[in-house]
Design a protein around this nucleic acid. Structure first.
Lengths: 138, 138
DNA sequence: CTCACTGCAAAGGTTTTGCAGTGGG
DNA sequence: CCCACTGCAAAACCTTTGCAGTGAG
């Protein structure tokens, strides 16, 4: 994704634009497949060798607070990040640490209809995420 | 839960029974609400002040491998554990770190039917977990 | 008896923090 | 210009590991 679009995303949230912030968001979007903080840093170091690890974590935290990216947690306890571009769920592989996106509007409709009918006591639903766990067939 | 039942759960998996193992599983079950390793250790220290933190982690890992407890992924920092007593999903509170269980067979049926029909390419589903995210109304 | 389990302590890796200096608006 | 952001390094944090000693089967 180009820097102009990325710049817009950041600006829309009223955040200051810095080269580091542009690079972090571009990395999360371009890497796509739920990168770890480490993956992101590795990519950014190519264009900005002096970026600090702490800075990347601070930027990611800012993005999470502003709803620009989401955290995705794995069983191995390493945090991964995911740019929010569309509503989707995740396929988790039991045999590797692969995580793939799963999109389906029909599924979202089914869930929405179900929860609208159920109306859980004392709980307001903001989001629903499915963790679909299994194995990829190679 | 009493130690006899807990002992049976461990024995059924062909694992050795030790006071530490009994205490860890009892703590996970009794605490109920998806305790962290730290919560578990805190409880156990009351009856077994000398138990080692490393031992608790090793025991929990053994239980996970043997399907006695599950790890619960939170989008925040810390790993939580959950005794497997029944198929269920989780309500995550955005404002606190509360996690509640959500049971509903109708939901499980709907999901099963949906995924049976969809048949995701190159992926065999072993389990599906819903993260229902929102706020508890106090 | 034997091997798996425990306790201990150190190491491992990830994420957070404090502070001085910098630069975006 | 000013305040928010960055770089740096240390530290906090949770979890894992190695090893010697112990105890369950």
């Amino acid at each position: 994704m180009n820097f102009e679009k990325i710049s817009d995303i950041i600006k829309n949230k009223g955040l200051k634009i810095t080269p580091q912030r542009l690079a972090v968001l571009k990395a999360v979007i371009d890497l796509g497949n739920h990168p770890t903080a480490d993956n992101i840093i590795e990519i950014i170091k190519k264009s900005q060798p002096n970026i600090a690890i702490g800075t990347v974590y601070k930027i990611l935290e800012t993005y999470v607070e502003n709803g620009i990216v989401k955290k995705v947690k794995t069983d191995n306890d390493i945090m991964r990040y995911d740019a929010i571009l569309d509503k989707h769920h995740h396929l988790y592989c039991l045999e590797s640490d692969r995580i793939e996106d799963y999109y389906d509007d029909e599924l979202n409709d089914i869930l929405e209809k179900y929860f609208k009918k159920k109306n859980i006591n004392d709980f307001t639903i903001k989001d629903i995420k499915l963790q679909i766990i299994g194995n990829f067939i190679n």
